[in-house]
């Protein structure tokens, strides 16, 4: 696992360890024990965080969000990638691996 690469939608991500998460109204706030910083994930950010309890591919996150929110796919993809890169830069998530690519012979 690594926490310092740029994220793309065909990769799996999972919540990092050593974070304490709390609800604040409809938003989600978090304390990173590792770096001592507090974060506000916001409402949709909190929803994305919940989706990452188990390893999940970025494009699955986008699909789930598109089923619940009124947003175009391109916009949703850009925003999810941007948000996950923010989390990754703060070492709050772990990028598990590239998705396996199948080929037919």
């Amino acid at each position: 696992m690594t926490t310092n690469q740029k994220f793309s939608l065909n990769q799996e991500v999972v919540q990092g360890k050593n974070n304490i998460v709390s609800e604040m109204g409809e938003e989600k706030v978090m304390l990173s024990i590792e770096n001592g910083k507090y974060y506000n994930l916001g409402e949709i950010g909190g929803e994305i965080w919940d989706l990452m309890q188990e390893p999940i591919k970025g494009d699955q996150v986008v699909s789930i969000l598109m089923s619940k929110y009124d947003v175009e796919q391109t916009e949703c993809e850009e925003h999810v990638i941007s948000f996950l890169n923010q989390l990754n830069e703060e070492s709050l998530i772990e990028i598990v691996a590239n998705a396996m690519q199948w080929s037919t012979n």
Binding site: G42, I44, D70, V71
Partner: peptide, 15 residues
């Protein structure tokens, strides 16, 4: 009915 979308942002709180 789908909810309104807002760009998710990570806010670092000054605590």
């Amino acid at each position: 009915m789908k909810k309104n979308w807002q760009k998710p942002e990570l806010e670092v709180l000054d605590v």
